[in-house]
């Protein structure tokens, strides 16, 4: 699993990347009440707005950490947004992308680097 400074995680399996927000991000947001997800087929470049995650008092854009095409969105979140708080780095995933360039994933932080980054905040 790889991480970004925007508190997103990416897990690559074959050419499919699963993307979500980190435990830290979920804690910062508080109770997640709604997640707006893209439709399958949407193509994104790194940095594009990919999804919106909402708590009662905030709405945050989730930016694509890597480029690719959306192959699936976690539709279970619409009925159970609390999953993002309960298991942000597992069942609370947001989207799956068909990766354009796997090297973009390698360029992200590993767990140790991300943990070190969190200590600086």
């Amino acid at each position: 699993m790889r991480f970004t400074k925007d508190h997103e995680w990416v897990e690559l399996a074959g050419d499919t990347a699963t993307i979500g927000i980190t435990v830290y991000a979920a804690e910062q947001l508080g109770d997640v009440v709604f997640v707006e997800l893209p439709a399958a087929g949407k193509a994104v470049k790194p940095g594009d707005a990919l999804a919106v995650v909402e708590s009662v008092k905030a709405a945050s854009d989730v930016f694509a950490p890597i480029g690719g095409e959306v192959t699936a969105a976690n539709d279970a979140l619409s009925g159970a947004p609390q999953t993002v708080n309960e298991a942000p780095e597992a069942a609370g995933w947001f989207v799956k992308l068909k990766v354009a360039d796997a090297a973009e994933v390698d360029a992200l932080m590993d767990r140790a680097a991300y943990d070190a980054f969190l200590k600086t905040l």
């Binding site: 709604f34 909402e54 708590s55 009662v56 008092k57 905030a58 709405a59």
Partner: peptide, 11 residues
């Protein structure tokens, strides 16, 4: 008051 993330004071 609810679904306030639609509104100007948050969004």
């Amino acid at each position: 008051l609810t679904l306030s993330t639609r509104e100007q004071h948050i969004r």
